[in-house]
Structures are given as C-alpha cells and as structure tokens.
Amino acid sequence: MKRALLLLIFAMPASLSLAACAAAQQTQAPSLAKRPIEGRFDVAPPAIVIPPPGPLPSDLAGRLARWEADAASGQQAFAAERDATAALVAAAAGAPVASERWVVAQQAISRLTAARAPLSGALADIDRLYIERTVDEAVDGLPDIYALRDRIAEMESAQDAILQALSAALPGQ
C-alpha cells in the first residue's frame, strides 16, 4: 500500500505537467511578426550639412608665411652643419669617451641641434595655432595650417633621424 501511495504521489505531478503542456499547445500563442507600431522609427536620420572650411583668414596668412620661412632657414642651417658634424663624428668613432675628439664631436652634434631651432620653434607655434583653432571650432584655414604643419613635421622627423644616427655612431651613447 505504501508503494501504491508513493507511486501515486510521484505520478501526479508528472501527469499535471503533461496536462499543462497540452493545454499550452492548444491555445493560440502571440505572433512574433513585426507590428505596425514597431516600424515608425525606421526613418533615415536627417542629413547634417557641415560646411567645408573656408579659406585661410588674412590675419593668419602672414603668420604661416613667417613660420614657413623659419622652417626653411632652420632646414638650411641644419644642412650647412650636417656634413661638418658627420666628419667630426666619424673622426671620433674609435676615440674613447671624454677624449678630445669625442668632446669635439659632441659639441658638433649640439651645434647641429641648435641650428634647427627655427624649425622646431615654427612647428611648436603651428601646433599651438592648430589646437587653439580646433578648440575654438574655427575651421577656416585648417587644411592650410595642417598641410604646413605636415611639411614642417616631416622636415623635423628627417632631422631627428640624422641626429640619432650621429649620436649612435659615437662611443658611449
């Protein structure tokens, strides 16, 4: 008898759950199809018209011309010092650190670094101008400013590579 009662207790929940499943299958489940209200946000966002930057303002044209001239003079001064510096570094290649030839080569590298100061200053000034105009959202002339900045940065990068190569050629570096 206990077994029959135990079997009845375990069989009852199973039969109830099967009945519930059968009842759920007989009712109409909601459709998962798209409803008309769901499509009301399927609209393309409005086009945002951004005017292109205008020409360079006249007050900046003179500053850019001055910075371009400074960069050119820094490039010329660097080129004039480069060959003499390379010769002094080559002469100091086998010399011990702190010897006279090594010190002369170090001084030549310092003079070469100083010769490019106008170019470095022009790049710093144009970077400052670019950041100020970007923060102020003054887009007129930014393509011209950025193009000049790119040219000056390329010159400085080439000079950096030369200075690093000369410094690496000296012993103790």
Rank of each mutant, 00 (worst) to 15 (best):
K2M: 04
K2Q: 03
A4N: 02
F10W: 11
A11D: 03
M12C: 14
M12A: 15
S15Q: 08
C21K: 08
Q25A: 06
T27L: 12
A29T: 03
P30N: 09
R35D: 01
R35M: 09
P36M: 05
I37S: 13
I37H: 11
I37Y: 09
G39N: 11
G39Y: 12
R40E: 15
R40K: 12
R40A: 13
A44L: 15
P46R: 14
P46G: 11
P52A: 11
P52H: 00
P53F: 07
G54L: 09
L56I: 08
P57N: 12
W67L: 12
W67F: 10
D70V: 05
A71S: 15
G74Y: 08
F78T: 07
A79S: 09
T85H: 07
A87E: 10
V89T: 04
P96C: 05
V97R: 15
V103I: 14
A108E: 06
R111M: 01
L112N: 10
L112I: 06
L112A: 07
S120P: 00
L123R: 10
A124L: 11
Y130E: 11
I131R: 12
R133H: 03
D136V: 03
E137T: 14
G141R: 09
D144Y: 09
I145S: 01
A147K: 07
A153M: 03
M155Y: 04
Q159I: 02
I162K: 07
L163C: 06
A165V: 04
L166Y: 07
L170P: 02
P171V: 04
